[in-house]
Write a protein that binds this DNA or RNA. Structure first.
Lengths: 207, 207, 207, 207
DNA sequence: TATGAATGAGGGTTCATTCAT
DNA sequence: AATGAATGAACCCTCATTCAT
């Protein structure tokens, strides 16, 4: 969890290079984690993907755990902020739901492996990081539940709807494309989000 | 994949003990696999849960892989048959969908850990077994897709509905309760199934 | 090394059965030892060859080591006595050498696997048995060396001949057919012995 | 069979160290294999001989099998080439035979344990390597058989001589000193080779 | 910054052996 | 006389991690 001992000081030239390389390593790690799972991902497989040697990874990260934690944090980055903005913004339930889905799935256009890693490797985090990540996750879920609750309150959403169940179902519908597609082109994101929204809002029944 | 050489002969009355013990081991293994994942699950943790020594497991199973494969097979057992029966039976789309969900989730009342293990550890199967399990899984998915297609054909389901997307979404909605609950009491199964069916059929919108 | 605890008393009916079964087990063990070597020979492979279960072997033998030791003893049985008889008997060097080879290779017509096991698994004996077997082996070698020495003494064998080297060479020439053939038919034994004798006596040079 | 992934790049000057260490490990392994046999040779015994930890062996070799295969290859190295040169060179049968024996036994002055390991542990090779080694071995044997056949053809060798039997007997005569001596001093090699040649050519009979 | 080398801990698996029945 | 069940020790191998250079 702590930074490697000899990491360059902030603000120097070196620091920029260091940070860039760190990010590259995170990407490689996320790719391997997403493909074979955290436990099967060997540090040398990660290093090989970057053409470097295993031991050099420890110049940038103090442990494999740390890399996983950081990937999960990156994957979660901004979710709370964006979701808060959506909730505080204009629009009825349906509009906010569509915005939510776009925001939620946006990462699939940028860092799909980070998202998959978050979904599938979260449980492999060491206790401390797992609790931390869990806290953020639950806060985010709470915001989505609030969206549902607002929908119920203003009559757009059926009163029979259990907000917790609805929120977790919404997430579940997002996992599928995350895991079974290699990534999402930027121009397809909105269509994907709306497809999910349509199902979630209206179900499959013909009207 | 084959039973250990020194297992008792078939049909003897000792064979029943052997089979019972095997099943107990499978249950213990499924519990550990579901809890910490296949890779983190040590064979001695499985043995400890049964008060036996690790090496004794190999009297019943020839490898950890074999146990996983068997758990996945058990989890899949009967799905094709039951789904075929539903499709060939009476009822409109909605009725068949509700039956499908009950059949699909029924395992949660009996062997929830087997189901979770199947969902989360499938990828850890050795190549041969993974292909075999994949074949069964795809056949089952195809049946559910056929259900969707029939719904579209007779006008109960919206024509805009992509059957593949719909089928995989239905499964996704089932994963949630599987993973986040410890099991489902037999008398709650129908309610759970119907809750999912309601969402899937009509969405959350108030009408 | 000690007999199993509950072995039947000598002279009883049971004792005969017991001894017969013991011999069968020794044969099976010798076959497996000869085929894959002592270390790779599992007790269950031996049992399987007899249609019995591994644990039952321990009713007849107290350990795998004991079976090996006994096989080696059986393989050596009578060598000293027969060699002594040959040395004490009539005939010149060449005649005695041919008798020696026939006596030495005779086991190939009866228990080739015992001989091969002796040759290839001797080193796997536990210390005590190895010394015992080594003692007998050396005594036998000494007799063969005496044969060579007598040949030298009476002028039939070249005076330049090192008796130790000659004796061990004679044995070496016997190992080949032992290891590379499946066994020797009784009527071929004399021919095989004479072929080796011819080479040993006269070499390959044309005269 | 392939070198470990993280071995140093070819041509670097670190690679030389790596190769040297690899060779040291092979020597240690050969010594242990020759002493107690492949199956009884534990990797930690090999490591202990070098003052390193067992796991470090795997930085140089990917498996115990690989080390054995390499030892056998080393033991066979050059045999075909040298034997071909002898056959294609000048000299009558007797001269070529003596050259053959010197070439064959030369390894006893350099790496006796490799030779003994080859002789006694060949059967423990995994299937692929065993076939490969078997192929080389048989090719070499065929060359020695050709030598015998040439001797028969030009009248130096008795027409009654079976070339296959003669060739395998020659090898058998070489096994003895290999196995029962700790090695051969360089200046004794020729004498040893000639002793064997004398026996093989003329037998023990006084003329 | 990066590498080669080394290590300790742990895991899955095999197997001879024991013992109650 | 034979079997099912269990066990402990040993073994090969993997891997994250460390450290000197």
């Amino acid at each position: 969890m702590t930074a490697p001992v000899e990491a360059p000081g902030k603000g120097t030239f070196k620091a920029a290079n260091h940070a860039r390389r760190r990010a590259e390593i995170l990407d490689a790690a996320a790719a391997v984690f997403a493909e074979v799972g955290y436990m099967r991902a060997s540090t040398s497989a990660i290093a090989a993907r970057l053409g470097m040697r295993q031991s050099n990874l420890y110049y940038y990260f103090s442990s494999k755990d740390e890399a996983l934690a950081e990937i999960c944090i990156v994957a979660l980055d901004g979710y709370i902020r964006r979701m808060t903005a959506i909730l505080d913004g204009e629009g009825n339930f349906e509009e906010k739901l569509r915005l939510t889905l776009r925001a939620h799935l946006h990462i699939l256009t940028q860092r799909p492996e980070h998202y998959v890693t978050f979904l599938t490797c979260r449980h492999d985090l060491p206790d401390g990081a797992r609790r931390e990540v869990g806290k953020i996750t639950r806060a985010y879920e709470a915001l989505v539940e609030r969206l549902m609750a607002e929908g119920v309150a203003n009559g757009e959403v059926s009163a029979r709807c259990d907000v917790k169940f609805a929120a977790s179902s919404l997430f579940a519908l997002c996992h599928n494309p995350a895991i079974y597609r290699d990534g999402v082109a930027e121009d397809n994101l909105d269509r994907l989000a709306d497809t999910i929204a349509d199902l979630f809002l209206n179900g499959v029944v013909q009207r």
